[in-house]
Nucleic acid binder design. Structure first.
Lengths: 250, 250
DNA sequence: CCGCGTTCCTAACACATGTAAATTCCGCAA
DNA sequence: TTGCGGAATTTACATGTGTTAGGAACGCGG
């Protein structure tokens, strides 16, 4: 069931059957389901669990006193929220659902046990943590330096490639189940300007967006237009840890 | 010698004499010194070492093909760059000196050994890693939602509090050894606008900035004006892990 | 099929911030 | 002291993006 997580981690390293079974167990624990605009956890809460997104899209966000909201990152199926969050006393941001979301609440004990017994998983989760940090840094670059069109294009490239990594793309298409207002809150742009910019990207043929279906006819072209380089996603490790034993295990 | 690192970590947990000696050893390894505008490591390089900043200011940054530069974060004395960076094959960003910098290159082996032998240090480094991630998230909020004045004010609050945590403030003053162009590259603003905004903050009396000396006469006021809440720095743990044994050790 | 709420889209205008170019200031080395 | 180079500052003007407001399209429940 945590097939998206497994797909994602296998972009970095090969997992044994036992590793995958361990992840199954982890994902089976305390499953919950919530609707869009509901929160998984709120700023100020005690972070008791590590949340694993199984289905749907969620986001980290922070709301300022005067109502302004910034979406800090998107959670896609297979994404894990801060494997060591329990070191901190309270959440400094909220995590909310953008669509209906199914997720698993993983206890500290379970996670500790699984990583102690499966070094491959530990390694893969480290990679995931580092890539998550790299994505956050790239957002800093995105918000700081890129124009609205570059910024949006960059985000769409990132989301498409991340979705592809968890098996949720169909050719050069994928879903984009968020509102333009959400995109605005993520990119630090007004919803009006998001709309203008989407029209612009549509006009140049870089994207096709109908309803919640996004198509990127020419990913390389969109990447070039957005100054997007996929290096920060660190997808260059595939097969790096392969040896004879691994092959016999799977 | 790594007194700044020790000060910082002791904001989270108390360290034993043995813990501190271990950190001394770590910081003694492979010391290097470089001048401003030189790089510690570059995008694309193989991350062989974990760098520990001992003296001076550095920054993570990323340069776009067309020359635009974004400073992604600041490194102050006592800051450590990505304790598990060696999981990745290559750097996705550069780290450069803003002032003359002294740093230590820590090998993977050393770090592994020290954390294996000192669980308190492991725990403290986890806290540091999580706070670093929280700071990066806060920058996303900063760049996405805050106006120029709020943004700059917020950065100055953050830097002041971080410097205070490593013993580098003097009353309500500290150094700010970076150019206005650097601040612009960090905040996604032009150097002209940084200058305008600094004048504005000076005009309202929220800051006094002469040369490289920054004074914040009323930190609470600057925080309020900048919508700054220190919760994301997670400084609320002090003394949390105290018990009789700890007291006898120090 | 209707009606209602949400989302999308468009327009006009305001304003925050960027750009370009000069000038002044300042620290430092000769 | 002088001269130099980088940094800070200022000005005038351009423009990207925000704001406000309203209408059109869409989806969903009754």
């Amino acid at each position: 069931m945590p097939r998206h997580l497994i797909s994602k981690l296998e972009q970095f390293t090969r997992l044994s059957v036992a590793d995958k079974q361990a992840l199954e167990t982890v994902a089976g624990e305390k499953r919950r389901r919530i609707g869009p605009r509901e929160d998984i956890i709120r700023e100020g809460d005690d972070p008791a669990y590590v949340n694993l997104i199984l289905e749907g899209w969620a986001c980290r966000y922070k709301q300022l006193e005067d109502g302004r909201r910034q979406i800090i990152s998107f959670f896609l199926p297979g994404d894990l929220c801060d494997t060591h969050i329990y070191v901190l006393r309270e959440m400094d941001h909220s995590i909310g659902a953008l669509t209906p979301v199914t997720f698993a609440e993983i206890s500290r004990e379970t996670l500790t046990r699984v990583t102690a017994e499966h070094s491959r998983i530990t390694q893969a989760l480290w990679w995931d943590t580092l890539v998550t940090a790299a994505i956050q840094r790239e957002w800093t670059v995105n918000l700081g330096q890129r124009s609205a069109a570059e910024r949006l294009g960059h985000l769409l490239c990132e989301l498409f490639i991340r979705l592809r990594g968890v098996g949720l793309t169909d050719g050069n298409s994928c879903v984009l189940p968020v509102t333009q207002a959400d995109l605005g809150d993520a990119m630090g742009l007004s919803n009006v300007h998001i709309n203008r910019t989407l029209q612009e990207l549509r006009g140049t043929g870089l994207i096709v967006l109908k309803g919640r279906q996004l198509t990127i006819p020419n990913l390389a072209a969109l990447q070039a237009a957005s100054l997007f380089s996929p290096n920060y996603l660190h997808l260059d490790h595939v097969g790096r840890h392969l040896d004879a034993n691994d092959l016999s295990e799977t």
